[in-house]
Amino acid sequence: MQNDFINKLSAYTVLYVEDEDGIRNNIQEILQHLFKETITAKNASEAFIKYRDSKPDLIITDIKMGSETGIDLIKKVRQSDSKTRIIITSAHTDLEYMLQAAELHLVKYIIKPITQEKLMEALEAFVKTHDGEKIYILSKNWIFDHSKSIISNDEEEFSLTKKESKFLKLLITKNRIITYEELENHIWDEDSVMTANAMRLFVKNFRKKLPENFLKNVQGTGYKIIRD
């Protein structure tokens, strides 16, 4: 279960905002081993610029950072973005801050010092907020993000067609052979005919986006997936 959670994190990008160099460097070292991309900023102004440029999946920000606070940053983000997940870190348990934070739809509020246990607990909560969008682990380092119709590994990212995304989800959720008849009925467009040549071309192109030997043809029946 822990490996599944870690694999899911590797599909996301994170922006970490902290004005204390030592803390920022230490937490960055942990995050960059977990996320697809880790971006850092040392204050709210810099963070907002990097947020606009990179559109991260998660923002982890300290509250007190000089003239602009983490709350100020989150309010600016929330003016046009209700989807990006946010975790706040703070050395303070100030009730006013916590009440403001509660209104900004946070994943978690971490009280410093940030231990690995607290951080991992918050990151697990973050992953759970995406469970409805479905991140599937295909094999080691290979991830299928159904909500974005994307397959990715450590080196590449592949955009799936509507047919490919539907077919892959069917293969994963059914976890059995998907027959040619099912492929035609559930995947193929109603206004087109699934000829043998069309199916072979579809599968040939689809395999190029999958882990090696992941999709197996069962002669005369259909297709199934082979996991590591």
Score class of each variant (00 low, 15 high):
Asn3Ile: 14
Thr179Ile: 03
Arg207Trp: 08
Met199Ser: 09
Met194Ile: 09
Gly66Arg: 07
Thr195Pro: 05
Ser159Thr: 12
Lys64Thr: 10
Leu168Gly: 01
Phe214Gln: 03
Ile143Val: 14
Leu95Met: 14
Tyr223Leu: 00
Arg207Thr: 03
Asn26Pro: 11
His33Ser: 14
Ala102Leu: 14
Tyr180Ala: 00
Leu73Gln: 03
Ile135Phe: 08
Glu164Tyr: 01
Lys64Met: 15
Ile49Pro: 08
Asn153Asp: 13
Lys134Phe: 11
Lys112Leu: 08
Ala47Asn: 10
Glu184His: 00
Leu58Asp: 02
Pro211Arg: 00
His130Val: 10
Leu73Asp: 01
Val127His: 04
Gln100Tyr: 11
Thr84Pro: 11
His33Phe: 15
Glu117Ile: 03
Val203Asn: 07
Ile225Asn: 04
Lys36Thr: 10
Glu46Arg: 13
Ile172Arg: 02
Thr195Gln: 10
Leu210Pro: 02
Ala198Met: 12
Leu215Phe: 11
His33Gln: 13
Lys76Cys: 05
Ile86Ser: 00
Ile63Phe: 07
Glu37Trp: 02
Phe5Gly: 05
Phe126Cys: 03
Leu201Pro: 05
Asn175Leu: 02
Asn26Arg: 11
Thr195Arg: 12
Ser139Phe: 11
Ser139Tyr: 09
Ile63Ser: 03
Ser152Gln: 11
Met65Asp: 10
Thr195Asn: 06
Glu133Tyr: 09
Leu31Arg: 07
Glu117Tyr: 08
Glu46Val: 15
Pro56His: 12
Asp62Gln: 08
Ile39Tyr: 04
Glu190Gly: 15
Ser149Phe: 12
Leu170Asp: 08
Trp142Lys: 08
Thr93Tyr: 11
Leu171Met: 03
Ile150Asn: 12
Ile59Lys: 01
Glu20Asp: 14
Ile30Gly: 01
Leu210Asp: 00
His186Pro: 03
Asp94Glu: 12
Ile23Thr: 15
Ala11Asp: 06
Asp4Asn: 13
Asn25Gly: 12
Thr84Tyr: 04
Ala44Leu: 08
Thr13Lys: 10
Leu104Tyr: 08
Thr38Cys: 02
Ile135Met: 06
Asp81Leu: 10
Lys64Tyr: 15
Met120Gly: 05
Ile177Gly: 02
Gln28Asp: 10
Phe214Thr: 02
Ser152Asn: 15
Ile6Leu: 09
Ser149Trp: 01
Glu182Tyr: 03
Ser45Gln: 13
Leu183Val: 09
Ile114Ala: 09
Phe202Ile: 01
Asn205Met: 06
Glu164Val: 00
Asn141Pro: 03
Asp154Pro: 06
Leu58Ala: 05
Leu123Tyr: 00
Lys50Ile: 05
Thr115Ala: 09
Met199Asp: 13
